[in-house]
Structure formats: C-alpha cells, structure tokens
Computed example of a mutant assay.
Amino acid sequence: MEDKIKSGYLYDFYGELLTEHQRSVYEMSINEDLSLSEIADSLSISRQAVHDILKRCDKLLSDYENRLHLVDKFMNIKEDVLRINELTAGDSSDDTLAEISRISQLILEEL
C-alpha cells in the first residue's frame, strides 16, 4: 500500500488517540499535503519540530496498528466484499445472488 494512503488509513482509525497538536500537524501533512516548511510557518514552529512530530505520529499510529490490526482487518473485509460483488455481478436472476450482492454493497458503503 502506498505510504500516503496507508498513513491516511492509520490516521482515520487511530488519529483520535493523538494529541490535538499532533493531529493538526499530521492533518496538514497528510490531508492538506503541506511541506514541512509550510506547516512550520503556519504553526510558528521549526521545520525540525514538524519533522519530529510527524515521525512520532507515524510511530504511534504504526504501534497501534501492530497491536490492534484494525486497518488490516478493514482491508481484508473490503477485499472479500469486493470479491463477493465480482462473483455475484454476472448472475442477478437468482434471488439469492441478488440478495448477497445487495448486502455486500451495503457493507462496502459502510466501510
């Protein structure tokens, strides 16, 4: 998985466990795609401080994932449901297959 995407997922699942300051720096980096200098200027802190905060956040978020595996579970469920959709897409005449397809689509929308 691409680093930015993985960081986004980790933040989505575990971001609330960071401090408010860490969240703001991380959001500027991941969601707004700002450079270290832009973040530093915006928050009136040094570039090095931004770098350190981002590294600390990455480590914290990765540690949470290593313990809880929520992102891995999410991705596995998503892959399984997508596979269900592929298998049921060809034959919608059978009521059972149509119902499976409908349920899998609902699950995907909730993820």
Rank of each mutant, 00 (worst) to 15 (best):
I39E: 03
R83K: 14
L36I: 06
E32M: 12
E79K: 14
S92K: 12
E32R: 15
F74C: 01
M75D: 06
N85S: 08
K73H: 10
V81K: 07
N76C: 06
F13I: 04
E38Q: 15
Y14M: 07
L97F: 13
G8M: 11
I103Q: 09
Q48A: 10
D41V: 03
T19A: 03
S44T: 07
V81M: 15
S44Y: 08
V71N: 02
K78N: 13
L70V: 08
H69D: 12
K59A: 06
D52M: 11
L108K: 10
S92Q: 15
G15I: 03
E38H: 01
D3V: 09
L36E: 03
R23I: 05
M75R: 05
K4F: 04
I30E: 07
H51F: 12
N66S: 11
L54W: 02
C57N: 13
R47N: 15
H69M: 10
L18C: 09
I30K: 02
E32V: 07
K4C: 01
E20I: 09
D80C: 07
L43F: 07
D33Q: 13
S29I: 03
S7E: 12
V50Y: 02
F74M: 12
E110I: 03
L108G: 01
L87S: 01
R23V: 04
Q105N: 15
K78I: 02
E16S: 14
R102D: 14
D52Y: 12
I100T: 00
D91T: 07
S92F: 08
K73W: 02
E38S: 11
I39W: 04
E99K: 14
E65A: 00
I77Y: 11
G15M: 06
V50S: 06
R102C: 08
D95F: 09
D3S: 09
D80V: 04
M28D: 12
D94V: 08
L54E: 10
L10T: 03
D80G: 01
F74W: 09
S37C: 04
D58T: 11
H51Q: 11
T88C: 12
V50A: 07
M28K: 10
D94N: 15
E32Y: 15
R47E: 15
R23D: 02
V50H: 04
A49G: 01
I45M: 05
S93R: 08
Y64P: 01
E20G: 00
S29N: 12
I103R: 13
E20L: 12
N85W: 00
V25M: 00
L43H: 06
L10V: 04
S42V: 00
E32T: 08
L43R: 12
V81R: 09
H21W: 06
N85A: 05
E99W: 07
L18V: 03
S104H: 06
L111S: 03
L87M: 14
R67K: 13
N76Q: 15
L70N: 09
E38L: 01
E86K: 14
C57A: 15
L43T: 02
R102L: 13
R67M: 09
D12V: 00
K4S: 09
L97G: 14
G90K: 11
L97D: 06
T88R: 02
S37M: 05
D52H: 11
V81A: 15
A40M: 07
A49H: 13
L70C: 07
T88F: 02
E16K: 13
M1C: 00
S62R: 12
R83V: 00
K55N: 13
C57P: 04
